[in-house]
Design a protein around this nucleic acid. Structure first.
Length: 479
RNA sequence: CGGGGUGUAGCGCAGCUGGUAGCGCGCUUGGUUCGGGACCAAGAGGCCGCGGGUUCAAGUCCCGCCACUCCGACCA
């Protein structure tokens, strides 16, 4: 009836079709729109506001550890891009090229950056002279283009927005420490801002970044038990320095090559947040990144004093430092409830004539749907504390999902059964050979996610070949 | 790149065997409503994805293309 008439507004339940559920949320929570070029996205105001909050939070963290922001050009001359062989080989199939300037054909093709290592190296080759100038701790916020074959909002698009940190250091140890520090930074951001637990680990040679000596990753588990790589940190050694001839005079007065890192996290994090917390009523946002943390809905707003009471509520919370809106539009209260649930607003406050009499308002949590009454006198303490509870609860539920769907396994047959069933992460022993890694993909249908930083230290048998080995590794089906 | 699905109003769709479009939601205006997706009335809104063909006549049949989407392969 009324419900049926509203079907247009409803989203596909995740149990029915997880992929459809996901894109429904992206569109109906008004995060994105499809652009006119395949694989390109428009971040709508609400989606961009989420990204801005993630950006602000991360940028602040980067600055705490001495990083500064820079801006590099979007175009890379072909000759520059090709100086480091592995990087070119890795990215060649997905580089977009500019071939004309106005009506004239260019002498040399220009690549739209798929990542900016080459330009940072080129720049450092110009400006770096002495060990005294090290380390150089740079970051840039930008978009990059990779010509992906299949695309999905936030998870894989041909253009995406991200930050890429690039640093050079005097010693390998320092660069390694930086790589690790930034991996931990990402994990902390996930926990404290996005309420997402991660598995920290190192990628196998097969899965590591083109040209890197070591790639570290944070892997998240989505509600469908698939893995999403949500951030990476790379250690390059002096490989790029040598390829691009970046040198400095060391303390010993000899010419040396600096050691380099890069690390990145993108708008994919928004996809991760969606698939970690959201439900069949729509988006669920952690309070730290929610553009609107509290929505005030006046009830029976035509009655005298209600709008004023709702406005006062909003003003007090804004003054307390929260992001709050009050919706006195002509929609029915029920419509507003559903609408702000769709948009993932963490907390809704209702105030009507009955509440005004009792000097209270009604609070409804987005995460659990629970309602409670807050005495108006306690507003400024009760609301922030509720928001904190919501964050903690989201994190706790995401941890449960990760833990309950991570399994210790000893044979590829078990892993296969899991992958084909409810999914999840399989934690096994691995001998370290490419053959066994490939076999897991072929036989069990999973790819290696990472070798967790926390290794058990025990000895066991490789999940494929049965050889004695010590390395713990995670496998899963990935986005 | 391979396989499937879908393109008709802003959104979701109907339109059987050809006769140049319809429903619901949304939108606009006015009124009554408001504690879980309100109701009444009057309106506005269409190169039926694009290009060819067949036909007196094409949303409908045929061919080609494009876009979106799902599943693989590939892939930060």
């Amino acid at each position: 009836m009324a419900k049926d008439q509203r079907n247009v507004e409803a989203i596909t339940p995740m149990e029915e079709d997880f992929a459809k559920w996901y894109t429904d949320i992206c569109l109906k929570a008004e995060l994105v729109d499809y652009a006119s070029v395949k694989g390109f996205l428009i971040l709508r105001p609400y989606g961009y506001a989420i990204w801005e909050n993630i950006q602000r939070y991360m940028d602040n963290e980067f600055k705490k550890t001495g990083h500064t922001n820079v801006a590099m050009p979007v175009l890379i001359p072909e000759s520059l891009l090709k100086k480091e062989g592995e990087l070119v080989a890795g990215f060649a199939p997905e580089v977009a090229w500019v071939t004309h300037g106005g009506s004239e054909k260019l002498e040399e093709r220009l690549a739209f950056r798929p990542t900016s290592e080459t330009m940072f190296c080129d720049h450092w080759a110009h400006v770096l002279h002495s060990w005294r100038e090290l380390p150089m701790l740079y970051n840039q916020w930008c978009s990059v283009i990779r010509w992906e074959k299949t695309t999905r909002p936030f998870l894989r698009s041909r253009e995406f927005w991200w930050q890429e940190g690039h640093t050079i250091h005097e010693t390998a140890e320092e660069a390694m420490a930086e790589t690790e520090q930034q991996l931990n930074c990402y994990a902390d951001v996930c926990k404290n801002a996005l309420a997402m637990p991660v598995v920290k680990g190192r990628k196998t040679d097969k899965e590591k970044f083109a040209g890197a000596e070591a790639t570290y990753t944070i892997e998240c588990m989505m509600k469908d038990h698939k893995a999403l790589q949500s951030g990476t940190s790379h250690y390059f050694g002096d490989k790029f320095s040598r390829a691009y001839d970046v040198t400095f005079t060391g303390r010993d007065n000899k010419l040396q090559y600096p050691f380099q890192t890069s690390w990145g996290a993108s708008t994919r994090l928004i996809g991760a947040v969606i698939m970690t917390h959201s439900d069949n009523n729509g988006l669920v946002l952690p309070p730290v990144i929610a553009p609107t943390q509290v929505v005030v809905v006046p009830i029976a707003q035509h009655k005298s004093g209600v709008i004023e009471a709702a406005t006062a509520l909003k003003d007090r919370l804004v003054k307390a430092g929260l992001r709050v809106i009050m919706d006195d539009s002509d929609q029915s209260a029920g419509w507003k409830f559903a609408q702000y649930e769709m948009k993932g607003v963490p907390l809704r406050l209702e105030i009507g004539p009955k509440d005004m009499e009792k000097q209270q308002c009604c609070a409804a949590r987005r995460d659990t749907g629970e309602k409670c009454f807050i005495p108006l006198a306690e507003l400024e303490t009760a609301v922030p504390s509720l928001l904190q509870d919501i964050h903690d609860n989201l994190y706790r539920m995401a941890c449960e999902n990760l833990e309950e769907n991570t399994f210790d396994m000893t044979s590829w047959e078990e892993v296969k059964a899991m992958a084909e069933g409810r999914g999840g992460f399989a934690r096994t022993k691995w001998c370290g050979s490419l053959e066994c890694e490939l076999a897991m993909k072929e036989k069990a249908g999973v790819s290696s996610r990472c070798m967790p930083l926390q290794q058990s230290g025990t000895t066991g048998k490789c999940v494929v070949c049965g050889k004695e080995c010590t390395t713990d590794i995670y496998w899963g089906v990935a986005y």
